[in-house]
Design a protein around this nucleic acid. Sequence first.
DNA 1: TTGACAAGTAAGGAGTCCTAACTTAGGATT
DNA 2: AATCCTAAGTTAGGACTCCTTACTTGTCAA
Lengths: 217, 217
Amino acid sequence: MSGKSFFDVHSEPLERRIATALAKVGTALKHQSLQAAGERGLSPLQAQILVQLHLSGGERPSDLADRLAVRLPTISDSVRVLVDKGLVDRQRDADDARATRLVLTEAGRTEARRAAGFSDFLASAVEAMSAPEQEVFLNGMLKMIRTLEERGQIPLSSMCVSCTHFRPNAHPREDRPHHCAFVDAPLGARHLRLECHEHEAAAAPQAAAQFLRFSRP
Amino acid sequence: MSGKSFFDVHSEPLERRIATALAKVGTALKHQSLQAAGERGLSPLQAQILVQLHLSGGERPSDLADRLAVRLPTISDSVRVLVDKGLVDRQRDADDARATRLVLTEAGRTEARRAAGFSDFLASAVEAMSAPEQEVFLNGMLKMIRTLEERGQIPLSSMCVSCTHFRPNAHPREDRPHHCAFVDAPLGARHLRLECHEHEAAAAPQAAAQFLRFSRP
DNA sequence: TTGACAAGTAAGGAGTCCTAACTTAGGATT
DNA sequence: AATCCTAAGTTAGGACTCCTTACTTGTCAA
């Protein structure tokens, strides 16, 4: 055991510095999305909407509003522009005549694929970390995001850790401790997903809670 | 050695998922800053400007523009509002009569302290990680940010890892491998700073490059 | 059938962001 | 000293973001 050094005493708490670091990356994201979208003749929100519709294969305006953490009129505004540009089609929902179903046109799909690459700049900066660092990092991010979800401070995602099919720490083996009951396969920290098509929200957040408590390291 | 499992084959690359996770936190940051600032009668940018002036003790509009990754007219606009509200004072710079020096008024300092707490929600979510996880996490964030800086994709910060006083891996001891020549004290990964008043930018990015290559784990 | 509630659009207003066009000051060159 | 270039900042104007409030239309249950 060593005593407290200069830096143990004269520093912002670690959590605060991490929050600051995340805010800096947030600045970069904002700036890059404005730039990247602008080069394609899109606005940041328009690009986000295209990417989201591409991922989901079609959604309602209110779903988009939830996912992107804005109000319905904000989506409505941007969608009108996208429809005018011929990138999105508005269809009446078969189940509920009040609702609208938004789908990409062919041109919209092309733009969506391009727009999806906007975060490549971040992904490539992640390569500055080693593989084990990346694994710990993803794990940490998931814990944070799950915590923010529980507090209603971030839109819900289709993450493994909040899925009925997820069995945390179901196996003794170090590298793949978790299990997905849907595909019936073991998975490790490096495999955990943020958006899974097979996701089914756990009624009670048991799996997520266990993940928060017990996951390694 | 075990073979490739289902999830090794059918997954987005780890770097992409990390980028997605960071983007989600970016969404939360945007949303919370709009909310938090709004409750205090401020806009997000106004709040950022107050916080930055509080940290630095007074800056020029062009410095603010650099730090916040926006153009000068954007700052000029918001500053005018802050001056009207009596939170910021415009002073002529003594050295250069073209330049303006912005300083907080007493009321401005009060608001700045409140606005600085806007990222508390993130800091407290960071507590979902264990202490060793947090250390790896901060280390990873610093590598990412440094990489983004080198590419000009994020504003420069006054981080240890890009400082002339920083000596990476100067000590053999595991928990405090680095050294700060300014205060002449060893420091570990958990002590690394993002904004240090004693920062002096390294002419050649040697220290930073060494940090990127050699830092543990 | 009527009345509450949900999905979506429209209208209006504050803020964010940009580029382009000034204004004024500093510094170098003649 | 006169001139020209460059830097700091403001103003003007336009697109987009984002909100709240106020409709419109459709669902569903009493």
